[in-house]
Each structure stands twice: as C-alpha cells, then as structure tokens.
Computed example of a mutant assay.
Amino acid sequence: MSQEKGKGLPTVWRIEKLGDVCDFLDSRRVPLNEAERAKRIAGKKPSELYPYYGANGQIGWIDGYLFDEPLVLLAEDGGFFGSPSRSIAYTISGKTWVNNHAHVLRPKDGIDIHFLAFALSIRPDVGDMVMGNTRPKLNQRIAKEIPVPFPSLSEQKRIAAILAEQLAAVERARKAAQEQLNEIENLPASLLRQAFSGSPLEMHE
C-alpha cells in the first residue's frame, strides 16, 4: 500500500489508488435497455423484482440479480463529473443488477465500504480525469488511478458513522422544508376555494 501523504491531511492518513483498495467487478455487469426490462418484468409480482442500477442510482426493476453483497457503485459515464455538489458514487446491498454505466467496487480488507463511498462521492477533481466531451467517461483504467485518503479502519468507521447521521439529519430537514413549501404553494388555491365555497374568511394581521 502507498504511504504517500496528502496535502492538508493528518500525518497518520495515507493516500491510496482506488485500484489498490478495491476489486472491480465490472465484468459481471449486464446492460438491459428499457424495452428489455419491461418485457422481462411484465406480469411479475413486486416480490419477484430486484433493483436495477445505473450511474446515478436505481433506474428501474428487473426479474433477476447479478450481485448479492454490499458494494460501491462509481459512475462510469453519465455521472456528475466535476460537480462540487452532485455525487458520483453510492452504496448498494442485497440482490441487485447493475448496468454498464457504473463501476462495481468491492472494498478489500481494511477499507470501510461506507467511508469509501463518502470519499468518492463528491470529487470535483475527477472531472479533470474523465475522457470525452459530449458524454464524459471515467473508464476503468483511469478510475483505478483515483487517489483516495484513508485513516485507520476504526477512524474510517467513526467518520462514516458521523457523516451518515449528519446527512440523515439534513435529509430530514430537507423533507420538512419541502412539506412546508408545498403547504405554502397550495395556500392560494386553498384560500380561493374557501372564498367561493361560502366559508367565512378571516383577516390576519
């Protein structure tokens, strides 16, 4: 493992190339277009279907699975490369199917899967590594060269747990704000319905 130090990182952290800390399971991916998936799932019960994943998350369902373990998916093409706020990596678990628009990563020993996903998630620098203009592509050769900072395994788990809780709190706040916004947006229509339904209107100062 590399012992190269990253600028600004604690001295006990190390920088590793992604290809040195993960197995790439890309050869097991199978792409299916929307028409093929629709044909295969027609008439099937929800309990017979499995998530079908692409570059940026689940995009549908399918009647079979290719993987059955916790994994990290990293966008290969169609990802938000170069974005300072949009994720290019996420975790999956259980029985799943992945198409050829996402790299499939299995962390090696000593690497926490959730820490790895967080470390890869927001990486504007990867935008400088992709190839192509119309549809940027992060091929496997380049993906394996992505530098990733790592502390000890125990510290990885601690940081990942804190981030998971903080992001969950952010998501709860976002949902609450969205619900309030929906109520505000619906208020004019509600007032108009009340005014023309014979219900008394009250003035609020």
Rank of each mutant, 00 (worst) to 15 (best):
Q156G: 04
Q156Y: 00
K157C: 08
K157P: 00
R158D: 10
I159C: 05
I159T: 00
A160K: 05
A160R: 05
A160W: 03
A161Q: 13
A161V: 01
I162C: 09
I162A: 11
I162H: 05
I162P: 00
L163N: 03
L163A: 14
L163C: 14
L163R: 05
L163T: 04
A164H: 14
A164E: 15
E165N: 09
E165H: 08
E165C: 02
E165L: 12
E165M: 07
Q166D: 13
Q166F: 10
Q166S: 15
L167F: 12
L167Y: 09
L167K: 08
L167S: 04
L167P: 00
L167D: 04
A169Q: 15
V170S: 07
E171M: 08
R172D: 11
R172F: 03
A173Y: 06
R174V: 01
K175T: 12
K175V: 08
K175S: 13
A176I: 04
A176H: 06
A176N: 07
A177N: 13
Q178K: 08
Q178Y: 05
Q178F: 03
E179K: 13
Q180S: 12
Q180K: 15
Q180D: 08
L181W: 06
L181C: 05
L181N: 07
N182K: 14
N182W: 11
N182Y: 08
N182P: 00
N182M: 13
I184N: 04
E185A: 06
N186K: 09
N186L: 06
N186W: 00
N186I: 01
L187W: 01
L187G: 03
L187Q: 02
P188L: 12
A189R: 01
A189D: 04
L191W: 14
L192F: 13
L192H: 10
R193A: 06
Q194L: 12
A195F: 01
A195K: 04
A195M: 09
F196C: 06
F196T: 09
F196D: 02
S197N: 11
G198S: 04
G198W: 03
G198E: 05
